[in-house]
Amino acid sequence: MIPAQFDYERPASLAEACQALAEDDEAKVLAGGQSLLPLLRLRLAYPSKLVDVGRLDELKGVHDRGDHVFIGAMATHDEVMRSPAVTSGCPLVAMATSHVADPAIRHRGTFGGSLAHSDPAGDLPAVVLALDGVFVARSAQGEREIPAAEFFVDYLESSLAQGEILAGVKIPKLGDGWGFHYEKFHRTAQAWAIVGVAAAVRRSNGAITEARIGLTNMGPTPLRARATEAALRGVELGDAVRQACEQAAEDTSPPSDLHAQPDYRRHLARVLTHRAVRTAAGSP
């Protein structure tokens, strides 16, 4: 890897890291490096400085905090998918994380890094959006909480300001009766999702009482399939679910690339949403 020249700083505390970023508009945070290093390698990014937060204990770990699970930004994908707090408190996160790239990348890549990168083709943004996660950002000015619905601004763009670092994400625990599924559609195991669907479905007495659906790679940001969510409310399993899922691609603007055209992605969103919801509804 032959990147362009950059300065490198490894601050001893999160406060120092925020300071280093605030001082330099062209500085970038280096976490697990699984998104940033490819950009450097291809010389698609020319940061003046990398602020390495890899050794900051304040960003590490996964914590069960009663009504939510707090996942530190520097928790690796592998830690997240194996964490008992995650597998019991927010199993959808564990399920989706196990689909991220390959084992080598999951040992390096981080939960926070992947979300802060805000790639709509990444698996985690749609999941956190579906679960109404809350992003916790730190800066010299203190701490700020950003609801997932406001975090993803545009393609590769989050609402984090320069000088702000993602400290972690609160994933609210859902109560009883919820089932989950992440349906990832990709051509090879290591490839990005052409389309992904994260579904959380609550059932009561055979009917769906609530559904939350996050869509991966169906627009410049992760999206919620709001029309389908609304149509699923109160619906019995069966044909009505299929009909509700026919609306999954509404208000999406899927990209066109080598792997798929927009009309095919819309079709996939409908089929995969149906599969994800059906599977999620089948689990207790």
């Binding site: 390959d102 051509r187 090879t188 290591q190 490839a191």
Partner: peptide, 14 residues
């Protein structure tokens, strides 16, 4: 297709 993200090679998993 200048990178392996665009030029897909299968791995054992595929």
């Amino acid at each position: 297709t200048t990178t392996m993200a665009d030029y897909l090679l299968p791995s054992a998993a595929d």
